[in-house]
Simulated assay, not measured.
Amino acid sequence: MIAALYAIPYVGPLLAFATSRFGLPIVVAGGIIFFYEGVPLGPLADISYVGPELVNLVGGRVGREYAAGEKAEDELWEEKIKLAGIAEAADIKTRQQDIDAAAQAYIDKQHRDAGRIADLVSAQKDEDNAPPDPKNPSGCKPDGISAGVSERLDAIGR
């Protein structure tokens, strides 16, 4: 069989070199490089159905490991993004609860203040309608804003 290969014009000298003392290390080194690096396919790897099969067939170990590492890294990033989304949703929910609590506290304070303001206004009107103090000869009311002035201030928005 090997004698028949020597009969083919171009294979004979190539086979003789590959089995020689200098050629054998080169063939072994080429085989190792081919095993690890594979055949560079270039744009052929991008063909829809044929490309992945060609990469599996003649792609090297380095390319397969690179693709596996890239896939694992993508999965890690997807997990990190998912966890970040969950954390952000929880943070938004907490912030919204804080905003709702502050708004409710403000509304409660307005309701409490409305009752106190109504009490003050009625007390002020009672004071304005009170009879003059006999001890005060001028007949002036005590210091403060009268109900009429207060109502006019309310109309313009104090």
Rank of each mutant, 00 (worst) to 15 (best):
I99N: 07
A67I: 15
K82A: 12
N56I: 04
R64V: 08
G63D: 06
A102Y: 03
L54F: 02
G69T: 02
D98R: 13
I86P: 01
A87N: 10
Q96M: 11
V50F: 09
T94W: 03
S48L: 12
E75S: 06
G85E: 10
W77K: 15
E78H: 03
A90G: 09
V50W: 06
A84G: 08
E70P: 00
Y66M: 12
I47P: 01
L76N: 15
A89L: 07
E78G: 11
E53D: 07
K82G: 03
Y66T: 14
R95Y: 08
T94Y: 04
K93F: 06
E79Y: 07
I81D: 07
Y66K: 15
I86Y: 12
G69D: 11
G63C: 08
A87D: 10
T94P: 03
A68M: 13
L54R: 03
V62D: 04
G51D: 00
G63H: 08
Q97D: 06
A103W: 06
A101T: 14
S48V: 14
Q104D: 07
R64E: 15
D91I: 06
L57E: 11
K80A: 12
G85R: 08
Q96H: 07
K82H: 06
I47W: 11
I81Y: 10
G59A: 00
I99H: 02
R64I: 04
S48H: 10
L83E: 15
P52H: 04
K71C: 07
E73M: 11
Y49W: 10
Y66R: 15
G51C: 05
G59I: 01
A67L: 15
G69M: 12
G60D: 01
A103S: 08
Q97T: 03
Q104F: 09
L57H: 02
G69W: 11
D46V: 02
K82S: 12
D91A: 15
R95K: 12
I86E: 06
V58T: 02
G59F: 00
